[in-house]
Amino acid sequence: MYAQMVKTAGTGVKKPKDMTAEEKAFQAKIDRNEKIEPKDWMPDDYRATLIRQIGQHAHSEIVGQLPEGNWLTRAPTLERKAILLAKVQDEAGHGLYLYSACETLGVSRDELTEMLLNGKMKYSSIFNYPTLNWADMGAVGWLVDGAAIMNQVPLQRTSYGPYSRAMVRICKEESFHQRQGYAIMMKMAAGTADQKRMAQDALDRLWFPSLMMFGPSNKESVHSEQSMAWRIKINTNDELRQKFVDQTVPQIEFLGLTCPDKDIKWNEEKGGYDYTDPDWSEFFAVLKGNGPCNKDRLAARNAAWKNGAWVRDAMLAHARKKAARKAVAA
């Protein structure tokens, strides 16, 4: 539920001698851990990169509702249904916090929506995978939200004030998501042989796509040095992926399931697991639009936007009519 492969605008980190006085003051402010606020001066490239990053993050939250929405009418009990509904509603809320933060940079909500709908802006690759059995709701909460938390917790300290504040709110709510997911996995893994098989199947399908959420290895990651200097990226992709693997492998063991990575091995020397990288050619194919569900996801968002148009227009027309009537009466 965050951004991948965000291209940083500009030509890389400038040396202090090449910076203008404004750029120097701006960087010094970030280095002092002060927040940049919407009306403050900022380099055009900082603004452009943040719009891409926050916009992609917001789109991920919104599109991320679709794979889970698939199970709202199929939840096994009323309680599970209510919990899943609350989680999906949270994702909508997260999207709205982030769109608002993004709009403070001078882009409109409609512009952002249109860039999602016409494919100019991306959302996280993970949501282009299908959710095939009920245990997927467990695995998504546990792994996908878990991976998102890894990335979002450090972003609470990001340099851009509105983004940082949105991250604080989101992180507060996100831990419910991960725990409800793991609770589903615990139930399934301790259930009948069929239920345990479904839990293993969900883990098998979502393990590598979850590792892809952190984006490609540092070696292939473009321009991240500048984003780190601006404090809009706090850790490298590989650092976060390692942290995620180290946290998750013992949780797999606790469930009594098998890690889909056959070569996973504890490395005493580095104090972490050696793991197999996901298939990056698959990742790039999914980003290009060729994942299992890309077309479905975009079609669903486009249909929602198109079919909701008359409601948006009618509400605005009604509000304008009421305001005009009030003005005449006054």
């Binding site: 916090y97 608002s100 909500r109 709110r169 509400m315 009604h318 509000a319 305001a323």
Partner: peptide, 10 residues
């Protein structure tokens, strides 16, 4: 935070 709405009530 902020949000979009047609009027005060919504």
């Amino acid at each position: 935070g902020s949000l979009h709405a047609a009027d005060a009530e919504s």
